[in-house]
């Protein structure tokens, strides 16, 4: 009888412990591709690449690395490429927009309004001293350069094939 109870308890221990571990932590790939490596070293063998938005299940943490499970493969991913929340969509600002920033219940004045008012201050100072000179048109020129993410990746791949 005693041996039976002992056996049941030992079996329970082995059954329950994995349940605690089984509550795995999800990590979402943020970079376009995240290599999963055989060891927590950049020079280690690459086992597979996970794509942006895919879920990795964290098993262990070691410095800036996570040991993860991905599609039946277990390996290491750099913490620089993952986050605990899914990757956000691209956020852009349109200066002509009257969109207002809203956080929680309190509606705030638009950051554009604040920035525009601050621009007035900065323009005034700009006339007084070279230290405060500004060139908003230059910023617009940079923003007019259109290079898409896809073009950039194709350019990189083309370079790697050379």
């Amino acid at each position: 009888m005693v041996k039976k109870i002992q056996l049941i308890i030992i079996m329970l221990t082995f059954l329950l412990c994995p349940l605690v571990y089984a509550e795995e932590i999800k990590l979402y790939v943020q970079s376009i591709k995240a290599p999963i490596l055989s060891e927590p070293l950049l020079g280690a063998k690459e086992l597979v690449k996970a794509n942006k938005g895919e879920v990795l299940y964290a098993i262990e943490k070691k410095e800036k690395w996570y040991k993860v499970r991905y599609k039946e493969i277990s390996g290491w991913v750099s913490s620089l490429m993952v986050d605990t929340i899914p990757p956000s969509k691209r956020i852009s600002i349109m200066e002509t927009s009257q969109e207002e920033l809203q956080t929680g219940a309190r509606k705030r004045a638009s950051a554009f309004v604040t920035a525009a008012a601050a621009r007035g201050l900065m323009e005034e100072r700009s006339r007084l001293s070279d230290r405060y000179r500004i060139d908003p048109e230059g910023v617009k020129w940079i923003e007019s350069i259109t290079v898409s993410d896809e073009e950039a990746l194709r350019f990189l791949e083309d370079g790697m094939r050379r």
Binding site: K52, L80, D83, I91, L153, F155
Partner: peptide
């Protein structure tokens, strides 16, 4: 921009 944007897509701020 081609070189920089290819690099930045391998970093962890896709919203930017």
């Amino acid at each position: 921009n081609l070189v920089g944007k290819a690099m930045s897509q391998h970093a962890a701020r896709p919203e930017i």
